[in-house]
Deep mutational scan, measured.
Amino acid sequence: MQRVNMIMAESPGLITICLLGYLLSAECTVFLDHENANKILNRPKRYNSGKLEEFVQGNLERECMEEKCSFEEAREVFENTERTTEFWKQYVDGDQCESNPCLNGGSCKDDINSYECWCPFGFEGKNCELDVTCNIKNGRCEQFCKNSADNKVVCSCTEGYRLAENQKSCEPAVPFPCGRVSVSQTSKLTRAETVFPDVDYVNSTEAETILDNITQSTQSFNDFTRVVGGEDAKPGQFPWQVVLNGKVDAFCGGSIVNEKWIVTAAHCVETGVKITVVAGEHNIEETEHTEQKRNVIRIIPHHNYNAAINKYNHDIALLELDEPLVLNSYVTPICIADKEYTNIFLKFGSGYVSGWGRVFHKGRSALVLQYLRVPLVDRATCLRSTKFTIYNNMFCAGFHEGGRDSCQGDSGGPHVTEVEGTSFLTGIISWGEECAMKGKYGIYTKVSRYVNWIKEKTKLT
């Protein structure tokens, strides 16, 4: 034993070699072989497995989906700052455009905790909710729209109204504003409101030439003092309507412009014939205590009207009353817009006519005020429907199939267009061939041609 100890002390290297040989010859039971080890760690190889990531292109799944990435790591994937920024906006807080917040056709661009709407022409605001041009839906104005110097929408209202708090709607500024039905039992019968379409306001006024200088022999019209197929109006439903009495009662109609003036057809009036105007009328054979009678003290036909040349060209006249009318729910003026808007309103496509005229061709006159909704007829169809001249200051309205029309005794009465609950004068009943005849239409004086003249002559002093 002493000898062994001496050998170990003198030859430590020998001992180490012996131990190493023993270990190498022993069977290893701690580690699995290569094949079995792979069965336990069965993990798919990654895209760049075996390579240094710093030297390969980034992978979106590896960089940002398996674990949260930084902007720089995302930049490695896209290799483009702009594309990385677009991805980053949604990656950080989701897609803010998912709810489609942009209105009126706006395009949404996502941002971090926010979004941006790219608005089409005519709109602005956070969600493109603000109209900035009158060309689109009248700028959301209830009545009139004008573009300011910086191309912003400025709404306005006709006389007797003021802008509401929203700067879009119009509200009454006087007790009985024009064009409004205020009798409670008839307010439910107000005709369907007309909503502004998209309009090209630059070209809204037709490029028409008034044929002022045409000389033409007097034409022989049949029954051209021209509501057939209409309905009984309720008291106060058309408070701007008046009836004219002269040699015979209810020979023509008219509309209240203001307390002192009536507008009617020029062919209705004769110099030297006494005319009485009755406002607030409903049943011409009954006294309903809503009527107001006034005498006409002055007749002003349009300066281009000449019955000797043509009885229905420039067929418009103004009547001055001896005493002002007292405005109330049964006696209310009709609204008159400017030339541009009167023309736009007419193009809405349908209007209402009213009167006490004959209820059928050569038949009896109506006792109760009649009204009828009539569609506008395109000019080409209008011209083809008659052998008589249709001037540019006239328009056609009615039904091709016949059966409904204005008729004798309705002449001078109103053709009105309702705009968001307020009625505007767009025409004056003038003439036609018979009444409600198939293929024939009622012919009306186009008020847009005469609004400046009306307003100039009827100013209240």
Rank of each mutant, 00 (worst) to 15 (best):
L60M: 06
E340M: 08
T461G: 09
N328M: 02
N100T: 14
G355D: 03
C18E: 02
I210M: 09
C97M: 03
E129S: 05
D405R: 12
R294W: 00
H289M: 15
N42I: 13
T271Y: 07
V248L: 14
Q57T: 01
E76S: 03
I336K: 00
G179D: 01
I256V: 07
T445L: 10
M8P: 14
F123D: 03
P197S: 12
M6R: 14
E54D: 00
S156M: 12
M394E: 02
G253M: 15
H302T: 02
G125S: 04
L19P: 02
V56Y: 01
N258L: 01
V243A: 13
F55H: 13
F123C: 03
V242Q: 00
E35H: 07
A173M: 12
I429F: 15
K126A: 14
K152I: 08
K311L: 08
N203M: 08
W431V: 13
S182Y: 10
S329N: 15
S354Y: 08
K247G: 10
A250F: 08
R43K: 02
G179T: 01
N343Q: 07
R449T: 15
T186L: 06
S187V: 11
A149M: 11
C252V: 00
R449K: 07
L367M: 05
E165S: 13
Q143K: 00
T417L: 01
Q219M: 15
Y305W: 10
T81A: 10
N393D: 09
H415F: 15
Q90D: 12
C117I: 01
C117V: 02
L163M: 06
K339E: 15
N222S: 14
N245G: 06
N48L: 00
E434R: 06
G427H: 00
I429T: 13
L103K: 11
V368C: 05
T417Y: 02
E35T: 12
V4R: 11
A366G: 11
D223C: 06
K51N: 14
A173D: 11
G349Y: 12
L327W: 15
K459R: 06
S11K: 15
A207G: 13
P239V: 02
L346G: 03
N310T: 07
S423N: 15
I443F: 06
Y450F: 04
N452V: 06
N393G: 12
T215Q: 07
S217Y: 10
V277A: 06
L163E: 03
A9Q: 14
N313K: 10
Y312V: 07
E129M: 04
K137P: 07
D322Q: 06
D33S: 13
E53C: 00
G230A: 15
I443A: 05
V374W: 04
Y352G: 04
N245T: 09
R62A: 04
L319C: 07
L189C: 07
E286S: 11
K293N: 07
D150H: 09
L369I: 06
D232Q: 09
Y330R: 09
N328G: 07
T194F: 13
S350W: 15
C128G: 03
A307I: 08
T445E: 03
K438N: 10
W118Y: 10
T190Q: 13
L318W: 00
K446W: 00
P120K: 07
Q57I: 01
G229D: 12
I443N: 01
S114C: 08
Y201K: 11
N258W: 00
G355A: 13
D249M: 09
A337Y: 00
N313L: 10
E79W: 05
W431T: 08
I428K: 01
I136F: 14
Y47F: 12
E420W: 10
A192P: 06
P177Y: 01
T194I: 13
W240R: 00
K234I: 15
N59R: 02
A192T: 14
G229I: 13
M394G: 04
G272A: 10
L369Q: 07
G253A: 15
E79Y: 05
E270R: 10
Q57G: 01
E35C: 05
E286H: 10
P414N: 15
D315E: 02
D198I: 11
A37C: 05
L20Q: 02
C155L: 00
R180T: 05
K260F: 08
C128V: 02
I210D: 12
V30D: 11
M6V: 11
T190N: 08
G398N: 03
K45G: 01
N306Q: 08
F395I: 01
N306R: 09
I256P: 01
T389R: 10
F360C: 09
D223N: 11
G442I: 10
E124I: 09
E27I: 02
L130A: 08
S25A: 10
E320L: 04
Y22H: 09
G272I: 07
N328W: 01
N147I: 10
T342E: 04
G432Y: 09
T417W: 01
P333D: 01
G280H: 02
V248T: 14
S448P: 02
D212T: 13
G439T: 08
A308Q: 14
G413S: 15
G403N: 12
G179P: 01
S385N: 12
D338H: 05
I429R: 15
S204Q: 06
G351A: 09
